[in-house]
């Protein structure tokens, strides 16, 4: 199967529920013509894209205690075990918000943040990056969050990919805001339009279900900044369920939560968590392993844990590189 020509990065796999395992640039894509293009892109971007994998986890809500999930942090801890059991260690873990559940008691909230850091530190990965959710940062405009996790929006490069953390919760509203938009424009300005960019944030940047607060009010403005870039993938959480959305050439992917699941808004009127099933405590959170490999065929994952779902998604495609080759002005 030829690499996808429409986008440099395309997520080809499906479903892991408690988190998502991404494989960036499968090794097969580095050979032959594609390999030469990746080398060219590496020179352009300053760092060659080389194969690696990363995991997205979301919505642990440490401190939550309620009927939809009386097991508290069990699913989160199981996910940590699962990440550690992966046959190939991921380079990094992206956590897309709601690390903790909110409380007005600052000391209690601080304790929850400590607990989150303790559990996540058990993961045998070199790098963990987070963005806040509204339950972490909505009540105090991310004051406590920043004490524990640092800035709420930032960017970094990893193996030729540019990662952008966006904060759409700290103003109390589902909003990014003018200051962060300006920062985003400046941050991206130094990259060629073909650079592979992964944006991770908490809320969807499009109107997924406004009545359920599944949107970002200035998401269109964010997308206007991102759309000129040809290889953008947006990862988010918040909705406690899988979702994929394609708008233009930008792909948006949601990860399931580590605490409880929400139903499909197209099928139910009320936003109520799916009830806890004591016989299947991790149902809708985790694991039903499905993995599509780079050639599009479905194969069995080697992940040993059987009760938590891990979604494997793979990036491939080289069109962005083609465009660089065709346009000498870049």
């Amino acid at each position: 199967m030829k690499p996808d020509r429409r986008s440099f990065m395309k997520i080809a796999g499906t479903s892991l529920g408690i988190g998502v395992l991404y494989s960036a640039v499968p090794a097969a894509a580095l050979t032959g013509e594609a390999g030469e293009m990746f080398s060219f892109l590496g020179k352009r971007n300053g760092e060659k894209v080389t194969p690696f994998s990363f995991v997205q986890l979301s919505d642990a809500h440490v401190g939550f205690n309620g009927p939809p999930d009386p097991l508290g942090t069990k699913a989160f801890e199981r996910a940590v075990e699962m990440v550690n059991a992966l046959p190939q260690r991921p380079d990094l873990v992206l956590f897309t918000g709601d690390l903790t559940h909110d409380t007005e008691d600052k000391d209690v909230h601080a304790q929850r943040m400590k607990q989150f850091k303790e559990i996540s530190s058990r993961m045998n990965v070199p790098l963990i990056k987070c963005v806040p959710g509204e339950h972490d940062a909505g009540l105090d405009h991310s004051g406590l969050y920043r004490e524990f996790f640092g800035e709420t929006y930032y960017s970094f490069d990893h193996r030729g990919m540019h990662f952008v953390a966006l904060d759409n919760v700290s103003q109390g509203k589902p909003k990014v805001g003018a200051e962060q938009l300006d920062w985003l424009k400046k941050d991206l300005a130094r990259f060629p339009k073909s650079a592979p960019i992964v944006v991770f944030t908490h809320r969807p940047l499009f109107d997924l279900k406004p009545d359920w607060e599944w949107f970002t009010s200035d998401g269109d403005e964010v997308m206007n900044v991102l759309v000129p870039y040809e290889n953008v993938t947006v990862l988010y959480g918040h909705i406690h369920r899988d979702d994929t959305h394609e708008e233009g050439h930008v792909h948006h992917y949601a990860a399931k939560s580590l605490i409880f699941a929400f139903p499909d808004p197209a099928k139910v009127a009320d936003k109520k968590p799916i009830p806890f099933d004591k016989d299947q405590p991790f149902k809708n959170l985790g694991i039903r392993q499905v993995q599509a490999n780079a050639k599009g065929s479905t194969s069995t994952s080697s992940i040993a844990i059987s009760d938590i779902e891990l979604t494997a998604r793979e990036f491939l495609g080289i069109n962005g590189v083609h465009q660089i080759l065709k346009d000498p002005s870049l």
Partner: peptide, 17 residues
Amino acid sequence: FTTICDHFCGANHGNMK
């Protein structure tokens, strides 16, 4: 039309409408 509270106000904010 459903109107929601979109300024986070606490644990059950998500169902304030």
